[in-house]
Amino acid sequence: MNHNRIAGAAFATLFCCAATAESIDSPLGTFDVSMTATLASDYIWRGQSQTGGAAAIQGSLDIAHESGLYIGAWASNVDDEAFPGNSGGADIEVDYYAGYAGSITEDISYDLAWATYTYPQASIFNTDEVLASITAYGVTLGAKYAYDPDSKLYTYIAYERELAYGLGLLLSYGVTDTKDQLNGPDDRDEKYRDWSVGLTKTLAGLNFALIYTDTDIKGSTCEAWYGDKDHCDSNLTLSVSKTF
């Protein structure tokens, strides 16, 4: 069973890892269980670093039923500077998700899910989100709506294609539209675009990904949001993952 993970991971870890799961037969049907460990040079989320440009260690556990239902958990280190106004010292993110994935035809599939993103040391940033996507012939159209504690809509289009020599091509473009209420009367309207281009390759059972990401948050806008013009720089991220 194979479906795209929907947790709030870096683009590199969302797409680079082929699913190799252990199948378990039970009276309730067949379950596929898989675990993935990832080491990345950065944790990029919607075009922005969540680790302040530092490396990230990430892991996930996924359980999928033959019906298409699935649940999972994902975790990564983060840096508190990635969260404007944070005084809680967040240094870890733990996400939980559940959903249903299915196929309409051999080339068309869909995924419906709910996810909660938690920060144990800075719970003010905890977020719940509903997600929906449809994939046809390598093109994915999707939307993610955060409804708690503040509304936020993320829409995206992604493309995945196999190239020669076992390489994979990944393209993504997304739009974030949110109104941040964390700073009271000084809240900001935040709307920006991000895009990614990447290559993947599997060698010796390891999944490698090299991803370039950027956004249209520049100069004074970046400084106003984060207090640092360099926070919104483009990124080139290398990751290596192993799925068990």
Rank of each mutant, 00 (worst) to 15 (best):
S76M: 06
Y100D: 00
V94M: 05
S26D: 14
E223F: 07
A204D: 15
A204W: 15
S109V: 00
S151I: 03
Y110E: 03
A56N: 04
K144C: 00
G166P: 08
C16D: 15
W45L: 09
T116M: 10
S76Y: 09
A122G: 09
Y96N: 11
L236G: 01
T215R: 00
V33P: 02
G72T: 14
S241I: 04
T51D: 15
W114G: 01
A18G: 11
P120R: 01
G198S: 13
K229M: 00
C232D: 00
W45K: 06
Y43G: 00
Y173D: 04
G89L: 02
S241P: 05
K144M: 07
S241L: 05
Q50F: 03
G29D: 13
N207P: 04
T51H: 15
E93I: 04
G89M: 03
R5S: 10
A136L: 00
A132W: 06
S34H: 11
A12I: 04
A224V: 04
A90W: 01
G102M: 05
N4A: 10
G72S: 13
K179N: 07
E93A: 09
T118S: 05
Y159F: 10
G227R: 07
K242A: 04
A55T: 12
L14F: 06
S241R: 07
D107C: 00
L167F: 12
W45A: 12
G174D: 05
W45C: 06
S196D: 11
K179V: 02
G198Y: 12
V175T: 12
D186I: 06
W114C: 01
Y110Q: 03
T200H: 08
I134M: 04
A10G: 12
R46F: 03
Y154Q: 06
G72N: 15
T116A: 10
L141M: 10
Y173R: 15
S239F: 07
A75W: 01
I57Q: 12
Q121W: 01
D148E: 15
G72H: 14
N77Q: 11
I71C: 12
S241N: 10
D128S: 09
G68R: 13
G89D: 08
G174I: 05
H65A: 09
A101R: 02
N4C: 08
T176C: 03
Y43H: 10
D177C: 01
D148A: 12
T116Y: 12
D25L: 10
G8S: 10
Y96W: 14
A143T: 09
S109T: 11
D42S: 06
